[in-house]
Amino acid sequence: MTRYRFYTATSLDGFLADEHDSLDWLLSQPTGEESILPYDAFVAEVGAIITGRTTYDWVLEHDGTVDGAWVYTQPTFLFTHRPPEPAREGVTAVSGDPAAHRAAIEEAADGKDVWIVGGGDLAAECARAGMLDEVFVSIAPVTLGAGRPLMGGQLDLELLAHGTNGALLEARYRVLGARG
């Protein structure tokens, strides 16, 4: 069964990016060899990716291409109101409620997991659509005061595992459902 997983990082005060959409605060953090969910093991289980436009544009701006192609090899569903220019092979632009695209996303995943690459608003929309099973978050020892929130909405979560990776605190949660 396809799992929907939000694998991300946040500042201690709950922001994915600062007010300028920068991740410098995260990229400057020392990491180690140990992790409760190493990236390589995680991405090997991913059959499809869904991302929002801000995250997509940030990845492209920060060398998110390999010889001009989208950096990820998995089929990617880009939630956007305006098609990307130029179009990238393997990237399908979609809009609207994630549930409307669930069948196509799961077909593309071919029995593997779906990675919600970003951002927090899209992860919250997926949660409301019943398309968020796990949240894996690395928490950096920095506060930003403002920026892009980790996730909107109210969810109940169950802690599955925790650990550290260099300066980062890691936590893996099962999504139990919406609060209330």
Rank of each mutant, 00 (worst) to 15 (best):
P84Y: 10
D40R: 15
T76Y: 03
T51S: 01
T92R: 15
E89Y: 07
V43P: 05
T65C: 02
D57H: 03
W58P: 00
Q74E: 07
R88N: 03
T31Q: 11
V59N: 00
P38I: 10
E45D: 12
T92M: 04
A93H: 13
T65H: 04
D21A: 05
T92V: 15
D57P: 01
W58H: 13
D21C: 00
A93G: 05
E89L: 05
P86V: 14
L26W: 14
P38N: 04
A41L: 14
D67S: 08
P75D: 04
P84T: 11
E33G: 13
I36Q: 06
Y72K: 06
T80S: 04
G68N: 03
D57T: 12
P83E: 15
F79A: 01
T51P: 00
D40F: 13
R53Q: 04
S28N: 12
D57R: 09
D63W: 12
A93E: 05
F77C: 01
W70L: 04
S28V: 13
F79E: 02
H62K: 11
D24F: 07
Y56M: 00
G47L: 07
A87T: 14
P30M: 03
G64E: 02
W70H: 07
R53T: 08
P83I: 14
P86H: 08
Y56F: 14
Q74N: 06
T80P: 01
V91A: 00
I50V: 15
T51R: 00
A87P: 10
V59Q: 00
E61F: 06
V66R: 14
D21K: 10
L60Y: 06
L37H: 14
Q29Y: 10
D40Q: 14
H62W: 12
P30C: 02
T65N: 01
E34L: 10
S22A: 11
V91C: 01
D63E: 13
A41T: 15
T80M: 00
E45S: 14
Y72H: 12
A87K: 12
Q29W: 07
R53F: 04
E45N: 11
I49T: 12
I50P: 02
L23I: 15
D57I: 06
S22W: 07
L37F: 12
V91P: 02
L60Q: 05
E45L: 08
Q74A: 11
S28C: 08
Y72E: 01
A87I: 09
S35P: 08
H62F: 12
G90M: 03
I36F: 10
A44V: 11
D21R: 12
P30Y: 03
P84H: 13
L27R: 13
E61L: 10
E45T: 15
P75Y: 11
E89D: 11
Y72W: 10
D24L: 05
D21M: 08
L78H: 09
T92P: 05
